[in-house]
Design a protein around this nucleic acid. Structure first.
Length: 809
RNA sequence: GGCGCUGUGGCGGAAUAGGCAGACGCGCUCGACUCAAAAUCGAGUUCUGGAAACGGAGUGAGAGUUCGAUUCUCUCCAGCGCCACCA
């Protein structure tokens, strides 16, 4: 009997797959299935999170392939980014070299796991042949007005020395460095993602294959709110102030106006108002990031300006206040202390009046010390008194609109995406700044703007990089020395995998063949960053005809983290488990099976060193079962279902059930942990069944072949070998997914008998038994009688083929 | 503070449309094989009473709907995640 020797077997098969190019995708083939896992940053080390991510997607890809689909499963490298620069500083290795070394390491680690990638499509985003088209696309966006340059207050990461997008600031800290983010004014490039805000929001409804939490996070991030922009005239003809509100019904209760310290209306006043000027200046230098604002004490200064209430004509003081954001709405708000906690807070600090105009609709009372923020009924609100909040909002909006004192508006929390980074290791911004012509695009025939790899010096210090002539007027000019946010690369790589060898265009007709991605697999941490950017990019690409449809990813699986001792595995915590040593010990198949089996894909997986033994033992047992079967000679063919004797009926049924259950686990629910369990159950049933007669061997053979096919997407190496041993031809990954086969009619079925919903007996009865007779039998059962006794059942519920519930009065 | 997710044995988890709670696996107990160990195989394993048959309790807590609830509804509690002066 041959021993199960995973390492030899796996190495041999991996080489054979490679020689045969068996996972190359067909650009013209039939029903396509594009399966993609989020490509890794080449850190040089594969960790368990990667193994989980790639094993999930590989199992799905292999399953779809067995179902006859033309599968594309590519792999590449998200290769720009800071770690390469840091490594370069630390060890003196150029980023390009460091990155290439890491890619080589990780590629061989991935190969050792037996993933069915089409390696011919591999690319790294740091290659000029890739970012060249990113630069090209940036210029197209610029031409279409979707990219623009402006000085803006930005999030500045003092450790990484770069600007961060809002999405990259987490709790007031840089997402990578963890440093407290500062506010700075920097000239940089933006992409007009806000142009797509509405579409990105409504598009979520067309994504039933996305997890609800991810869609919710994106909805919150986009933050759509409908409201009214109200125009307040300043006293003495001093212009106007506009304020956005979602609660126009509370306008009668507005007692002051609050404006952001950076509001342009203040600059003229500040010249005459020292206290205000000081306040504005202090706020400008306050380095508090957005996330920390909420905890800050509310401060303000009366500007001396007075605004006219558009309903009452009353004069409202205008205050400069640090709790108003310049970057949302108009930078000015109407303050209604009675119905907004922040306003009330501020009013209390500065002794401003509180006017209650909304009362609970049910007539209940409300604590006067807190703001009543819910909808209700208007009181003491002039013409609007008595109306409910919704009606009042509508009426006030209509009235103000008619008088030109307001208009309905939709505001979004989403801001434009700042993409300039003051980093070396990234794709250069293809722009030349000219004193006379402004920001001039690098002509297309001069792309790519190559990142100079000879010297690892910041671009702004490399004169031979930035010294150029203006392409328009030939005067001396200066290249933009910023690089693009690395999230730009990952926003379109899924499209480029369709045609990575295309030298003459960003994308070609193959993108129309392969896109959208049918199944995307990755970590939930990208719920807003990468997944929102990629949806935006896809639409921008669509608008110039390069990709089909509106969405890049049809189905999304967000896998949970791999934890050890309750915390995410990480080097700093010292709780990592090295996949490499585990593979050496158990083989890739065991590692794959364990990581699929240990938890549902979407949930966090608590790593257990001992639990790995389970899947390993199972594979060894399966191996032995096949060896025993094969050693006993040729397996007879499966006879017609009707001829199966009692001794093998259970195994036949279990096999059939397993085929259905496992198929469903792969296709519908992607709950591969349950699929793996069902195959284990099947193998237990095989081991329980005798192998003496020809018919027993025939049914066992059928069960074993099925088990091997069901398991093949998860543990491809061992299954390839067992498939051959069982007489299967060719690659198991090209074999057809098994048919469940004819259902075996049962003569007897087991019926559960309950009394008052409690299980009291089980009956084995003829499947076609009449309901009346079944009830008789159930009632006659000894143990049922003990509970029913002389009492007369009030009711008997019968669920055909399943149970009888006898309800006593 | 808002929104969302999750609570099931010693542990990871299963229960597809409201119908046998605990599949599958880890761990543990006992046994077989062995000089011994490893490996392997067999029996058992929610708690509790009982030798057993057979009971009692039981899916975070409490209520509700139902003949019947891990599953549906409501109110709590706990943990996690996201967002958060967004007007």
């Amino acid at each position: 009997m041959t021993e199960y020797n995973p390492s030899a077997l796996e190495a041999q098969l991996q080489a054979a797959w490679e020689d045969a190019q068996t996972f190359a995708a067909d650009d013209t083939g039939g029903e396509k299935f594009y399966c993609l896992a989020m490509f890794p940053y080449p850190s040089g080390e594969l960790h368990m999170g990667h193994v989980r991510n790639y094993t999930l997607s590989d199992s799905i890809a292999r399953y779809e392939r067995m179902c006859g689909r033309n599968v594309l499963q590519p792999m590449g490298w998200d290769a720009f980014g800071l770690p390469a620069e840091n490594a370069s500083l630390k060890h003196g290795v150029p980023p390009a070299e460091w990155t290439q070394d890491n890619i080589a390491k990780m590629r061989s680690q991935l190969r050792r796991l037996g993933y069915a990638y089409d390696w011919s499509r591999e690319f790294a985003t740091c290659e000029a042949s890739y970012y060249r088209w990113e630069q090209w696309f940036f210029l197209r966006l610029l031409k279409r007005g979707l990219a623009y340059h402006r000085e803006a207050e930005v999030n500045w990461d003092p450790v990484d020395q770069t600007v961060l997008a809002n999405e990259q600031v987490v709790d007031g800290r840089g997402w990578r460095s963890g440093a407290l983010v500062e506010r700075r004014s920097v000239a940089q490039w933006f992409l007009r993602i806000t142009d797509y805000a509405e579409e990105l929001l409504t598009g979520l409804e067309a994504l039933p294959g996305w997890p609800e939490p991810v869609k919710t996070m994106q909805r919150n991030w986009i933050g759509r709110s409908e409201g009214l922009e109200i125009c307040f005239q300043l006293e003495g003809g001093g212009g106007e102030l506009r304020a956005f509100t979602t609660r126009a019904d509370t306008l009668p209760g507005a007692t002051f106006i609050a404006v952001a310290p950076g509001h342009p209306a203040l600059s003229a006043v500040a010249t005459q108002h020292a206290k205000l000027a000081a306040f504005i200046e202090a706020e400008r230098h306050s380095s508090v990031a957005e996330g920390a604002l909420a905890a800050r004490e509310k401060k303000g200064v009366d500007t001396g300006l007075r605004a006219i209430h558009p309903l009452s004509g009353e004069l409202l003081p205008v205050w400069a206040a640090n709790f108003v954001l310049m970057s949302y709405g108009t930078g000015a708000i109407m303050s209604v202390p009675a119905h907004d906690e922040r306003d009330l807070d501020f009013a209390h600090s500065y002794g401003l009046p509180v006017r209650r105009v909304v009362a609970p609709a049910d007539g209940g009372s409300h604590d006067a010390d807190t703001a009543y923020t819910a909808d209700g009924q208007l009181v003491d609100a002039g013409d609007y008194s008595g109306l409910d909040s919704a009606t009042a909002r509508q009426r006030i909006a209509e009235d103000l609109t008619r008088r030109g004192a307001g208009e309905t508006r939709i505001n979004y929390r989403l801001r434009d995406w700042g993409i300039s980074r003051q980093r070396y290791w990234g794709a250069p911004v293809p722009i030349i700044h000219c004193k006379h012509c402004g920001a001039v695009p690098v002509p297309e025939d001069q792309l790519p703007v190559q990142l100079p790899t000879a010297s690892v010096t910041p671009l702004k210090e490399q004169a031979n990089f930035y010294t150029v002539d203006c392409p328009r007027c030939q005067a001396a000019a200066r290249r933009d020395t910023d690089t693009l946010d690395t999230f730009v690369e990952s926003s379109w790589y899924q499209a480029r995998f369709s045609c990575p060898d295309q030298d003459h265009a960003m994308l070609d007709e193959r993108a129309h063949h392969w896109l959208p991605v049918d199944q995307y697999v990755g970590g939930i941490e990208h719920a807003v960053l990468h997944l929102l950017y990629a949806r935006f990019f896809h639409r921008a690409l669509r608008d110039i005809g390069l990709v089909p449809g509106d969405e890049p990813f049809v189905r999304l699986l967000t896998q949970g983290m791999v934890l050890k001792d309750g915390a995410k595995m990480s080097k700093s915590k010292g709780n990592t488990v090295d996949p490499q040593s585990l593979i050496e010990r158990y083989g890739a198949d065991t590692v794959r099976l364990y990581i699929l089996f240990a938890a549902p894909p979407e949930q966090d997986l608590e790593w257990s060193d001992t639990a790995v033994e389970g899947p390993h033992r199972f594979l060894k047992r399966l191996w032995r079962l096949v060896q025993t079967q094969v050693a006993a000679g040729k397996t007879p063919p499966l006879p017609p279902v009707g001829e199966l004797p009692k001794s093998v009926q259970e195994l036949y049924r279990t096999t059939r059930a397993a085929i259905i259950r496992v198929g469903d686990a792969y296709a519908e629910r992607r709950s591969l942990n349950v699929g793996a369990a069902a195959v284990m159950e099947l193998c237990n049933a095989i081991a329980r069944t005798a192998a003496d007669s020809a018919i027993e061997r025939a049914v066992r053979g059928h069960a074993l072949r099925s088990a091997v096919l069901l398991l093949a997407p998860m543990t491809p190496h061992i299954c390839q070998m067992l498939w051959q041993q069982l007489g299967g031809a060719g690659w198991v990954h090209e074999a057809a997914w098994p048919e469940a086969g004819e259902e075996l009619a049962a003569e007897l079925s087991e019926i559960v008998v309950q009394v008052n919903g409690k299980l009291r007996a089980r009956l084995s009865v003829a499947t076609d038994i009449e309901e009346e007779r079944l009830c008789e039998l159930a009632l006659a059962h000894e143990n049922v009688q003990r509970f029913v006794g002389r009492r007369k059942p009030r009711r008997v519920v019968v669920v055909a083929g399943r149970l009888v519930n006898i309800v006593l009065g």
